[in-house]
């Protein structure tokens, strides 16, 4: 299915958020996730399913002022 990940359309096979992150190469990242604008805590990822057209944000630490 097609989902949008960090603003880019991606094709993924998995539906579970944990598996999607693994499939896209984010598994080892120290990251936080939001699905369709809602924060998904790390411990809720395994129980979160994605659907076609969903928008996923994967954020990691960056420089900031």
């Amino acid at each position: 299915m097609k989902i949008t990940v960090n603003g880019q359309v991606r094709e993924v096979q998995a539906t579970c958020l944990t598996a999607v992150l693994d499939e896209l190469g984010f598994a080892s990242q120290h990251s936080a996730t939001a699905l369709n604008g809602e924060f998904v805590p790390r411990n809720a990822r395994a129980g979160t399913s994605l659907a076609c057209g969903d928008e996923l944000e994967v954020l990691t630490p960056r420089q900031g002022g």
Partner: peptide, 19 residues
């Protein structure tokens, strides 16, 4: 120090390196 969160590239390591 102040820090932020930004999008990570798939397979990228920018966030981890900075952290």
């Amino acid at each position: 120090v102040t820090v932020s969160l930004r999008r990570e590239a798939a397979g990228g390591n920018s966030g981890q390196a900075f952290w």
